[in-house]
Amino acid sequence: MHETDSMVMEFSVPNTLESEIDELITHYPEKRSVTLMALHALQAHFGFVSDAGIEWIAQKLDQTPLAVLELVTFYPMFSREPLGKFHFRICRTLSCALNGSEKIYWALCEQLGLDKNVHKRQTTPDGRFTVEFVECLACCNKGPVLFLNEDFHENMTEESVSKLLTICNGDNSSERKGTGK
């Protein structure tokens, strides 16, 4: 469409992903209802939701690209920029906040060279780490809690989060861990 052709060409959805979405379509009364699930599938695969991805979904589900973009910008869980290989999501809702989730966030930011006063999603310049605050992760009795990619970590302290970072730093594989379903 309006995007540069090269972008659209670079973007390609593998057959497995497309058939996954085709299968999803069969579960809903109308194609439009699949939008959210399709976005999750695309983000899980590519690590973020690109313009080309939005347009691909729009076409697939007979939507306008704008309608898909509305959803993407409504839900904070979608990212328009590539996420780091290690994605920290720290709960900042009441229980976790009372138990010091801010300290965990600060510790992470300081150790990764990110700005601890910024309350928006941040990614390190090397693209390896993304840190952000999120709302309640539904494990309020074990706060502060966080997600590292898709893995849950409870009762976090500054020490335990540093340990997690050390493990991440030692992982040199290029694969993004735990982003499957």
Binding site: T64, L66, A67, L69, E70, T73, F74, Y75, P76
Partner: peptide, 9 residues
């Protein structure tokens, strides 16, 4: 022409 929408929350 469905050209306008609402972004963000």
């Amino acid at each position: 022409v469905p050209a306008l929408g609402i972004l963000n929350r």
